[in-house]
Simulated scan of single mutants.
Amino acid sequence: MSSHTDWSILAVDADSGETLIESTPDLVLPTASVGKLFLLHHLAELLDADPTLGQRMLRRDSVEPVADSGLWQHLDAAELSVNDCARLVGAVSDNLATNVLLDLVGLAPVQEVAKRLAPGGSMLYDAVRDVRTPEDPPMLSTGCAADWAAYFRTPHPTVLSWLAPATDLSMVSSALGLDPLAHTDPGADLRVWSKTGTDDGVRAEVGLLQTGGRRAAYAVICRFDGEVLPVLARMRDHGTQLIDALRAD
């Protein structure tokens, strides 16, 4: 049986806006955990207004347990600060920390942020669920490359600080050759701040890449029904294209 893929891709020079890579950038596709960025951005704006909120302690048993991505479910700590929950979401896409933060701030305000930031229709629909029933939204989030490339031209600096240690470098960022567990040196020539999304038939990476004194805001989103390895190979190729474009004379 032949496989099928849909792509939404856009990469631009973050300063000039020059298009570096483009393919159906307005196509809205499932983006899995990428939509958690709307939660992080909303939280960053709340912290701008009240920095003390970051020290508020949150209990993980305030929400139902949820599995898959994340570390908090494996830790002894029963409570963490708002700041640390956000760091877990940025670094390892922590599902439990995501739901605890959503329980704190509410989904509706996060969706209002999405409407403001993403004119192309990117949206976070729900908290993370182990099982989705017919009564639940059918997926966690959707998005298009145009929205996310635009966001990462002028991202919130606090959101970037949470994304800096992101450990999933399996997609576009696999071309960079970075240590997934140690790539936050502010003096390094090559840096990336990214958020990925993974689900059955979905791979997505959005972010900001910096090298050679230049920056690219990028988003590569794929929905597919075949093997994942060709999808990851193409995403890696786009990472190589971005490095080459930024380092070109």
Rank of each mutant, 00 (worst) to 15 (best):
L88E: 08
V89S: 04
Q55W: 14
D84A: 13
G120H: 09
G239H: 07
A145Q: 01
M123G: 14
R214S: 07
Y125G: 01
H156W: 08
G201V: 03
P186C: 13
T196L: 00
G121A: 04
V202L: 03
L229T: 09
Y218E: 03
P51K: 04
D199H: 03
S33V: 01
L39D: 02
S81T: 15
M139F: 08
D225Y: 12
H42V: 09
A175M: 10
R215P: 03
E227L: 11
E112A: 15
R215H: 14
D6M: 12
D147V: 02
T154Y: 07
D225G: 13
A145W: 00
G226L: 04
C85I: 12
D199L: 09
G239M: 05
D84H: 14
T158Y: 09
T240F: 14
L58N: 06
A188F: 01
R203P: 00
H74S: 10
V92E: 10
R247G: 06
V28K: 11
Y151S: 09
S2G: 09
S194G: 10
G201R: 05
P65M: 08
D136W: 06
K195R: 02
L208V: 02
D126R: 13
H238Q: 15
T142R: 04
T196W: 00
M171P: 03
V110N: 04
L209M: 08
T196K: 00
D168W: 05
W148V: 01
P138M: 13
P186K: 09
A145S: 02
S122I: 00
R129V: 02
T158Q: 07
A150I: 05
S69I: 13
W7Q: 02
T52H: 12
R203A: 00
T198L: 03
W148K: 01
L102A: 05
D26R: 13
L104S: 13
A127M: 10
D179P: 02
S8N: 04
L190K: 14
H4M: 13
L40F: 02
H238L: 15
P65Q: 07
D68C: 14
F152T: 00
P137Y: 04
S174R: 07
N83S: 14
H41M: 05
I21G: 11
L104H: 15
K115H: 05
V66Y: 09
D84F: 11
A67C: 08
L71V: 12
Q210F: 05
A166Y: 11
L160I: 01
S173V: 00
D200R: 15
D179F: 03
A114H: 00
S173P: 00
E112H: 11
A78M: 14
L242H: 15
W193E: 04
D199Q: 05
A44P: 05
S33P: 04
R87E: 06
E45G: 15
A204T: 10
E45L: 13
S141I: 14
S122E: 01
L209W: 07
T31H: 03
V159H: 06
E205Q: 04
H4G: 11
D50P: 11
L58T: 05
L107W: 02
L10R: 00
G212H: 08
A49K: 15
V192T: 08
Q73G: 14
P230V: 07
W148R: 01
A164L: 06
V192H: 08
T167R: 11
G70A: 02
A248E: 14
H183M: 02
A145H: 01
A118L: 06
N95L: 01
H156E: 04
E135N: 05
L29W: 08
R223E: 09
S81M: 12
F38M: 10
D68G: 13
V128Y: 07
F152A: 02
D48Q: 09
